[in-house]
């Protein structure tokens, strides 16, 4: 049997979150990702590294970019990828999460990539299966590959992570992207602040190592990176905000608010964007400053690196024993 998680650089069976990962482990994943960026820009993007391996993308929540990104990452490494989404799965027929996991596990996949609307569900599943698990987003908890692709984008543009000032703006309360980014950026030595109305900040967020602002002009002052979060329109029903226009007026990123950040500050957004809600088209489409499309490109490279790291970690140990 395969033993788990013995890759010297990344001694873990799963990638469930950024919390608790060491700076060296994160750097390893970023360095490896970097090597795939060029490959993905070639005409022939395919390499036989994971030939014969099986990856199941199990999505309990709708997703376009993350699922596509993982699927492409598998194909470019020659792994066999199967996509399962909630609409086609047995979950619809009443099967529990763990039964679904055990059923899929019996088919001997190498990696399960799982997205679930409930925080902690991916960890629960990972405890049950023998293969590796990558968390592709669980509730409001973590989205580690998003944080890695954001970090890779920043590192390529700014040549470093350490010492940078990063503002994460918007619906931090419901955001797994924000939590994963806060953990990663703090571990890598960046300084992080969050900017949002009080209703969209979770209690105790400052204990995660961030500075809190309720005003964009103040929060963006001196920032190298402005990271906008998506505002889900249903948030208005819970009295988190009164209206989209008020939200945009005070917290939407436009040229005027952006002027408070450093002149070369980078604009990022995990997508999909709500133009005119959290971001103005003028800044979202600013080629010089917006890294939004680059983030998507880095996503594929990062996911290739994660798949390779987890599979090779398990495989190497298996061969050695």
């Amino acid at each position: 049997m395969n033993k788990i998680g013995s890759n010297t650089f990344f001694p873990h069976k799963n990638l469930l979150g950024m919390e608790g990962l060491l700076a060296d482990e994160i750097s390893h994943l970023l360095d490896l990702s970097e090597s795939y960026v060029e490959q993905n820009r070639q005409a022939n993007k395919k390499r036989p590294l994971l030939q014969g391996r099986t990856v199941i993308n199990l999505f309990f929540e709708s997703s376009t970019r993350t699922r596509t990104s993982f699927e492409l990452a598998c194909k470019r490494l020659s792994a066999d990828a199967i996509n399962m989404s909630v609409s086609t799965s047995a979950i619809k027929k009443g099967e529990t999460l763990l039964d679904t996991a055990m059923t899929l596990n019996a088919m001997h996949p190498d990696v399960l990539v799982v997205r679930h609307p409930h925080s902690g569900a991916v960890k629960l599943l990972a405890e049950k299966v023998t293969c590796s698990v990558i968390n592709a987003g669980d509730g409001s908890h973590e989205h580690p590959t998003q944080a890695l692709l954001d970090a890779l984008t920043i590192r390529r543009r700014k040549k470093r992570l350490e010492g940078l000032r990063v503002a994460i703006c918007g619906d931090v309360l419901h955001s797994r992207v924000a939590r994963s980014n806060i953990h990663l950026l703090n571990t890598m030595g960046a300084s992080v602040c969050v900017v949002a109305p009080v209703t969209l900040l979770p209690i105790g967020i400052e204990r995660l190592g961030v500075e809190i602002f309720h005003n964009m002009a103040e929060g963006l002052k001196g920032c190298d990176i402005v990271m906008m979060l998506r505002l889900q329109r249903e948030r208005m029903n819970g009295n988190f905000i009164p209206s989209l226009r008020e939200y945009f007026h005070f917290f939407g990123l436009d040229a005027e608010k952006l002027a408070n950040a450093k002149p070369d500050a980078l604009i990022m957004h995990p997508g999909p964007m709500n133009r005119g809600v959290e971001i103005d088209s003028e800044v979202a489409d600013d080629i010089a400053r917006s890294a939004i499309h680059e983030q998507v490109e880095m996503g594929v490279a990062v996911r290739m690196a994660c798949l390779e790291t987890l599979i090779s970690s398990v495989a190497n140990e298996g061969e050695a024993s």
Binding site: P197, V198, T199, H214, G238, N239, F240, I241, P242, F250
Partner: peptide
């Protein structure tokens, strides 16, 4: 109480 708490929190933003 939940709506009033949100109102207090939201008001404290400004």
């Amino acid at each position: 109480a939940m709506i009033f708490k949100r109102a207090l929190d939201y008001a404290s933003t400004f």
